[in-house]
Amino acid sequence: MALIELDEVSKVFGFGEATTLALDEVALSVEKGEFLAVMGPSGSGKTTLMNIIGLLDRPTHGDYNLGNESASRLKPIQQAKLRRDKIGFVFQFYNLLPGLNVLDNVSLPLAYRGMTPVRRAKRASDMLELVGMRDREYFMPSQLSGGQAQRAAIARALINKPSIIIADEPTGNLDSHDSKVVMELFSEIHRQGNTILLVTHNPELTRYASRVIYMYDGMIVGDEKTPIGQMARHARRIYFKKQRVTDSDIAAGVSAMLKDIPGKEITSKTKRKKATGRKRRLIKRSKK
């Protein structure tokens, strides 16, 4: 049984004229221990997908099972508890609380579990040791470099020993050196048997992943297993073609990446039409 099981999951935002279909009947199954990289252009639904998997949002339609448990129709309090115990978030902008020092930030999820301050501090300290931030325990987030802040954020995500770690462009705000440090850390965490979902724009980072999915227009348009240490096949195409963005591409408002999304050829006229038909149906349903 897969750890994450999405069955025809759709997500509609907005009402009436302003309705957007962010996820379009997405089916995805992730096994325990996978390192899944999610790629795709902006607005393709990557973050929405992560939010649904991370129980920050609920699907408009479809089912989501998290470790044999139906998670799409949970009450907010149950969602919050699952989030606390089973999911660790790492964000692009670290999202450490500026008023708390590193130790307090890392131990915050434990506080929400009701653990005593002493035990909390001990565990957070151990976790900071793991990410190599032990000597920064009492620093405030504003005193940290980007890489350090992200490592602290990773420590916070790991503190409750979650079954899934969701990282939404964790290196998007880091220089190449810090990116490498952070990605090596993820790699190490993965080796210890953790499941990681990584959203990224950087094809280079697919080297760390065991599987890469490509998203476009709310759908998963490509899915490939890839040996760790090697850049994914399609990602490599994107990577090497990246430089070839022409002015006309920009003028047309099309990102160069789009051109190389695998399966885009398939989403030609017929499939697109089908999609819009389905979209209409979904919007109708959600209006009810």
Partner: peptide
């Protein structure tokens, strides 16, 4: 938002 993401309940 951050507090909720890391598991704070509404209460």
């Amino acid at each position: 938002g951050i507090r909720k993401a890391i598991g704070a309940t509404n209460r």
